Amino acid sequence: MTNYAVDEDTGTLLRIWPTGRGQRAAVVGSLPTTAAVEDRLRLAATLTSLSEALWRCYTHPGLAADDRGDGNGEGWRREQSREAFSQLVGFVREPNLPGEDGVMIESYDPVEEWSHRVGRAVRAVGDAQVLEAVSADVAAEIEAVESAERGDLGGRAQQAVVLSRTDVSPVQVAAADGILALDPLDRERLFLDVDPTAAAVAVAHWLKAAADVVAEVSGMSPDQVLYAADDLEALPVETPSEVLELFDFSNTSYGVVVEMVRAAMDVGEGVLADLGAFLVAHDTGDDNDDADDEAAPVRLTPLDPRRPAVDLLEDLLTGIRACRLVYEEYAGAGDAASTDAQFCAAVREEARKNYTRLM
């Protein structure tokens, strides 16, 4: 999301947003010297909260919820928030204000309510030019979210590359797949140009292809390839190994990745989606288990719930590199460059043959 700040030295309102490589900043507008410090800071704070609410509509789309038809369910509420986008600049310009009796209407919808609060904060600053600048900036932030939804991460929409999303754009999956087709060992562009959940969907597909290639030349099962790599070099192979195992239960990398990311995002919000399944998975069935073992911490998700999609993407790319390490032990291609070329060609062909596994 975009963060807003006040530069007290110059009296300007700034916006700062992430790009995957670092933070960018730009001036929204100049604040009048007559405005109180608390009013300036309140304006920056409300704009930041509005941006957070807008980008949550991107990371938690209504179509990803199971209760979209429910007239008061989570999916319905998400769709209501999204449908309000066209009215938000109007709320900034004409916000709800207290009536003569001091009573003020507040919206249950977060994007609507934060738009009204931005409008009231602008009024407190009391400058027509600030109102115009803020209105234009809110419109640009809305357009950035809409652009990201379409799969176009140019301009301010690039901040989507650091966000985890509970669904993916097919356009973004295709973009990530195209990057990997050029070079299955490429890491940088996926973190800079592609939504991380969509990138992880594509990388999971290519990881499966890489594991199958190594399994064919080594004679081991695909599920054992990453553990063999861990014997050669200490690597975080638990998560990519779990992804490979999940392909036994899912026909698509979309199904594997999106379910993992959604579950981790739920944990990040304090929710365990399926407590029964979790308890079964961690039940050893031994009534004589040591009490100290039972008291040991248990991870609710293999991913970092603060950045699950990016964390998964990192681990899956490490998994492809791990496959490359094992491949080198069996391929006999000669030098490193020849091994890379031979490995990439084989994985590229395997991924092409199983392209329908993506979505």
Rank of each mutant, 00 (worst) to 15 (best):
A175R: 11
R306H: 12
M220Y: 10
V201Q: 01
V92C: 04
A199Y: 03
T239Q: 11
D231E: 14
R93E: 12
F249Q: 13
V347C: 06
D231N: 09
T33K: 06
R68E: 15
L43K: 08
E112L: 10
A45L: 12
A139E: 15
P95H: 08
A53G: 03
A336D: 11
S135V: 13
L14R: 12
A202I: 05
A198T: 05
F247P: 00
V310K: 08
L246F: 03
G178R: 10
Q159I: 07
Y330N: 07
E329P: 01
S250T: 10
F278H: 08
A296H: 08
E294C: 11
V213K: 09
R78W: 12
D167A: 10
R307A: 13
L275Y: 09
R262Q: 13
A148D: 09
F278A: 14
E242H: 11
L316S: 03
L31H: 00
C323R: 00
P308N: 02
V213S: 11
E349N: 07
S218E: 09
L14W: 09
A181Q: 09
N72L: 07
T239Y: 08
G151Y: 01
R189F: 12
G102R: 04
R150W: 05
G255F: 02
G334A: 06
G102A: 01
V28R: 01
T34S: 11
A295R: 12
P236V: 04
T34A: 15
L275R: 15
T33M: 09
G151S: 05
R306T: 14
Q129T: 14
G151P: 01
V261N: 00
E141M: 13
D223G: 10
S253G: 04
L325N: 00
R40D: 05
A64D: 11
E314G: 10
A136Y: 01
D286V: 10
A45I: 01
G119E: 04
L192H: 09
T301G: 01
A44S: 11
I179G: 01
V122K: 02
V310A: 15
L232S: 07
D66Y: 08
T10W: 08
F91I: 00
G334S: 04
E294L: 15
T318K: 06
E294M: 11
V130L: 05
D177G: 03
A333W: 01
L235K: 06
E141A: 12
V213Y: 09
A331H: 03
T59K: 00
A5S: 13
A204C: 15
V267P: 10
A341D: 15
L185T: 03
G276P: 00
H282G: 01
V168F: 09
A84W: 06
V92D: 04
W206D: 11
A160Y: 02
V217A: 06
L272H: 04
Q80C: 07
R42S: 13
G276K: 07
A160I: 07
A228R: 14
V134T: 00
H60G: 02
L88M: 06
L312S: 11
G90S: 12
T12N: 14
A35G: 04
G155H: 15
I105M: 09
